[in-house]
Design a protein around this nucleic acid. Structure first.
Length: 494
RNA sequence: GGCGACGUGGCCAAGUGGUAAGGCAGAGGCCUGCAAAGCCUUCAUCCCCAGUUCGAAUCUGGGCGUCGCCUCCA
């Protein structure tokens, strides 16, 4: 049984879907007024892993993630840059999709844009007005917080306490038009030059919170299984979504509320004023997505995560430990001989089975990726010890292959493709020149040239001509090809 | 001020009341011409105090400390 931490109940609970074997899941997407940053990426990668895991466990997952493409911040940005809000939104929506794919986040099944769902939002607002939960003031429509008795339940707040803590709310003149200072806009009257749509209350645009309510309802119905987002959305965004949606439909909006922890940079909150604002696309210029994901996997998704160059380097080293094992196993398989098996195959099969079970055990416990990674590393260590300094028997290969495939499968659940990590070395054309210079190679085929160089080096080593041997190795190293001497002979890899 | 989270070895980090996974880094050894990779060995009693318990990192209370949210924020 999968357990998840539900923000609504502040406890870990059994995960039971509304419909057997199916999961309806909605995760709040970004407001597209800039490139997404590394903190956004943390949230989206966390939910990507949750989604992948649920699918791997056999659920049919319908994953919806919106794009908020109409909002104050977009309008502000557009004004600053002297272009239309639609242009700004289109540019950053495109960039968002590009960045997500670059981070190996799977596309959602449905990616609705707020601007394309306005009729549904208007309908929802109307329902709220009809039901006495919202009221119009000069083209604005506000949700009446006190009309919804559960307001504050998700975030654990009480309306009266919130108000007493917020004297400054009243000082803003605009607030006078609201019946209660905590009431929030579900529809905003258009100001000159702003994007707007016709509505029963005049030209205007939807409030942020109503967008998600309407899109979730339209594409997944009510209630849904999982509604997710960053922890900073708990209040007010998700609180308001619940109020609107449940006030309108009279039923539960979402059964499980899952929130991912905040990302910090060098132990500080990421903010523009601190100058430590990192864009995902900039990080990915120097870091492979697998390494970034590896970093995130090592911390539970609900804990704060500290991001730094040092941790990135550690993650790269950790990932290569797994990749090296896979590479080594592949190498041993391709050099297997017709000899008696040096391995304890029965023990290996037991370990394969137990690793899978323990991985599931960890992940079922509120998606404990760090624990699951521990299981993987334990398996890696055992495999390494098992084959250390051994030459495999041909009869071992199917079993070693199984172990290798398990590693690939489990890392795949994390969105990390080990095949890619262990990809075949692609030889640069320069190896031909090197082979020509060092070994007198006359052809033009890169693979042949490398082969030639290795033969040349092996001979040199046999003759104790270390200078020549190292010249070959260094020459290949300069082309990013690593030569390693194994008991089975030399091996070249990237 | 209100709400909440957290404090585990040099760093990161998991941990379901029964005597502390894992990764990175370090030390010693093996293997190697030297490397690389890998193997072996080694490296903590879990912020402090009190309590519950046969037994607590895990439960309770208090203290200290860090952080987040309360305004747009993933």
């Amino acid at each position: 049984m999968i357990k998840v931490y539900n923000t609504k109940t502040r406890s870990k609970v059994d995960f039971e879907t509304l419909e057997r074997g199916r999961v309806a899941m909605y995760v709040c997407g970004p407001t597209v007024y800039n490139y997404i940053h590394i903190g956004n990426a943390r949230t989206f990668i966390s939910f990507d892993i949750i989604r992948r895991y649920l699918s791997w466990r056999g659920f049919t997952v319908t994953f919806v993630q919106n794009v908020t493409d109409v909002d104050d911040k977009i309008i502000k940005k557009a004004a600053e840059e002297g272009r239309s809000a639609a242009e700004v939104a289109a540019e950053y929506t495109e960039a968002f999709i590009t960045d997500m794919r670059a981070a190996h986040v799977l596309d959602p099944d449905i990616r609705p844009k707020a601007t394309e769902e306005i009729p549904e939002m208007i309908e929802l607002v109307q329902q709220l007005i009809d039901g006495g939960h919202a009221y119009e003031v000069e083209g604005d429509v506000y949700f009446a917080v006190r009309s919804f008795e559960n307001y504050g339940k998700l975030s654990g707040r009480k309306i009266d306490e919130m108000e007493s803590g917020h004297r400054d709310l009243r000082s803003a003149g605009l607030e006078d038009r609201k019946r209660d200072p905590l009431d929030f806009a579900v529809w905003k009257a258009a100001k000159p030059g702003e994007p707007s749509w016709e509505s029963p209350w005049g030209a205007g645009r939807p409030g942020w919170h109503i967008e998600c309510s309407a899109m979730s309802k339209k594409y997944l119905g009510t209630p849904i299984d999982i509604h997710g987002g960053g922890a900073d959305l708990v209040f007010p965004h998700h609180e308001n979504e619940i109020a609107q949606s449940e006030a309108a439909c009279g039923c539960t909006f979402a059964n499980y509320w899952i929130h991912s922890g905040m990302l910090q940079i060098n132990s500080e909150k990421m903010s523009k004023s601190l100058g430590n604002f990192l864009l995902l696309r900039d990080v990915l210029k120097t870091t492979r997505p697998e390494v970034l994901r590896m970093l995130m996997l090592q911390t539970h998704y609900r804990s704060p995560l500290d991001f730094s160059e040092e941790r990135l380097a550690e993650s790269a080293a950790a990932l290569s430990r797994i990749a090296n094992t896979v590479k080594n196993l592949e190498w041993l398989e391709s050099n297997a001989r017709d000899i008696p098996s040096p391995l304890d195959i029965r023990g290996l099969l037991t370990q394969i089975r137990e690793t899978r079970n323990e991985f599931i055990f960890a992940m079922d416990d509120d998606f404990n990726t760090a624990g699951a990674l521990g299981v993987i590393f334990a398996f890696v260590g055992d495999l390494n010890a098992m084959v250390a300094d051994k030459t495999l028997s041909i009869s071992d290969c199917p079993f070693i292959c199984q172990a290798r495939e398990l590693l690939g499968e489990l890392m795949g659940v994390f969105g990390i493709d080990l095949e890619e990590e262990c990809g075949e070395a692609s030889y640069p054309a320069e190896v031909v020149d090197l082979a020509h210079k060092v070994a007198g190679y006359a052809g033009t085929d890169a693979a042949q040239a490398v082969e030639m160089l290795l033969v040349c080096r092996t001979e040199a080593r046999a003759n104790k001509d270390w200078a020549l041997a190292d010249r070959v190795r260094d020459g290949l190293a300069a082309l990013n090809l690593v030569v390693e001497d194994t008991p089975q002979g030399p091996r070249v890899s990237l």
